[in-house]
Design a protein around this nucleic acid. Structure first.
Lengths: 228, 228
DNA sequence: GCGTCGCGTCAGGGTCGCGTCAAAGACGTC
DNA sequence: GACGTCTTTGACGCGACCCTGACGCGACGC
């Protein structure tokens, strides 16, 4: 889910934005001044910032600079002022876009999408860890591929889903209930036989010696654990 | 040096832009219609495109789509029309920014700097992959051409669109939902029979043995994958 | 030593998804 | 208005996947 930080000191604008954004399945944080905005940005790591330049405690351009000191998060500036100077200043300080009030909600949302879209290509690539290697096989979460000895291993959707949950929790114990609910849906939780069958499939396809697993470990009575 | 492609059919606007840009040490190419614009983009690989939507030969949004088929170069749209709809359309087609005429040269230049600045972290090594080769055929994303054994293969718009999405994600699994939404629109997502039909067409036209595909692979229950 | 419980393994059957073909519908061109 | 092309839709067969039940084994507790 995409996280948006909205910064504006006019409550009605914030409310309008929050309502519209939440309706479109964005996760939204809001700040009414620059100090709070910078704190929230640091703690919540938004994917995009919507920033009003007219804040009570500090100059909007200062907020931009504060953000740009440590992050490249897209910044979409809102402002009542039309002056060309202001725009140039904000953009050169590091803003990505500049919209003058009053603005159309459709347009703002489209610009937001454009800003977010620009990050995407680099997401699946190197952003977070997408490949996990063991001495026997390699899992590429982004490409949804498993390679074993130079050959791609074919996994069924259920096998993949299970593997994905385990790999994302590498080293941690994942309870049977959690596995069942993540892979088969919230209404499952006791059908541990499903797990037994599919863990066996994964081990058969990926473990060197399926009956003595080194990576897909059973914690009797509790759940399973994936280890590199 | 940063290379800019200016696309506009009004000579005086082009002239004004070219003068201003050259004065600021940009390298500038110019086109007066969509066809020329796409050709120049393919041959010159600009770092940023300034695009007027009102072109004589084709719809501006089509030009955006044509570019986005193979490159992520920033696109800054110019338009005389203020309608919110137009903006949303252009931005959702893949434009990065939208400026309405008449515009201030300062502002335009600032937005241009902002657009260019965004690509910097990924280095000047702009290696847009425009052609993909397999032992059986070659796909040229920029020219929108597929060559097989010296002959160009005729693809319908839908076939091409599908191919484009797959090739852009070479090696990665693309989910059925993603394919449907990218090719047929956001409101599609379950009509997997479309995919079956069109994948069959692509395989018939491009695979050596359509019933045993080597490049357009099915991942049952999940999606499709293009491999070189 | 015996029963219970949890886990691993295997094999069978129902169901679903995919590939294929064909025909009808939509669209643009002449 | 007729034609050709592209897209959409439906029907059908086949193979693969998922579920299920049965059995064996080892660990543990009584």
């Amino acid at each position: 889910m995409t996280r948006v930080l909205v910064v504006d000191d006019e409550p009605q604008i914030v409310r309008a934005l929050v309502i519209n954004l939440k309706a479109r399945k964005y996760e939204v944080d809001a700040a009414a001044d620059g100090r709070t905005a910078l704190d929230l940005a640091a703690s919540r790591h938004p994917d995009v910032v919507v920033l009003d330049l007219g804040l009570p405690d500090m100059d909007g351009v200062e907020v931009i600079r504060g953000l740009r000191g440590w992050t490249r998060v897209p910044i979409l500036v809102l402002s009542a002022r039309h002056s060309s100077d202001e725009k140039v200043q904000a953009l050169d300080a590091g803003a990505d876009d500049y919209v003058t009030k009053p603005f159309g909600m459709d347009e703002l949302l489209a610009r937001l999408r454009a800003a977010v879209r620009r990050l995407e290509p680099f997401g699946p690539g190197e952003d977070d860890v997408t490949t996990v290697e063991t001495e026997g096989f390699t899992v590429d979460l982004a490409a949804k591929k498993v390679n074993r000895g130079g050959k791609d291993v074919r996994l069924t959707p259920t096998e993949w889903h299970l593997l994905e949950v385990l790999v994302r929790n590498t080293g941690r114990l994942v309870s049977q209930k959690q596995l069942l609910q993540e892979v088969w849906g919230p209404s499952y939780g006791t059908e541990t036989n499903y797990l037994r069958v599919y863990m066996a499939q994964l081990r058969r396809k990926l473990e060197a010696d399926p009956s003595h697993p080194e990576h897909f470990l059973t914690e009797p009575g509790m759940g399973y654990r994936f280890e590199k």
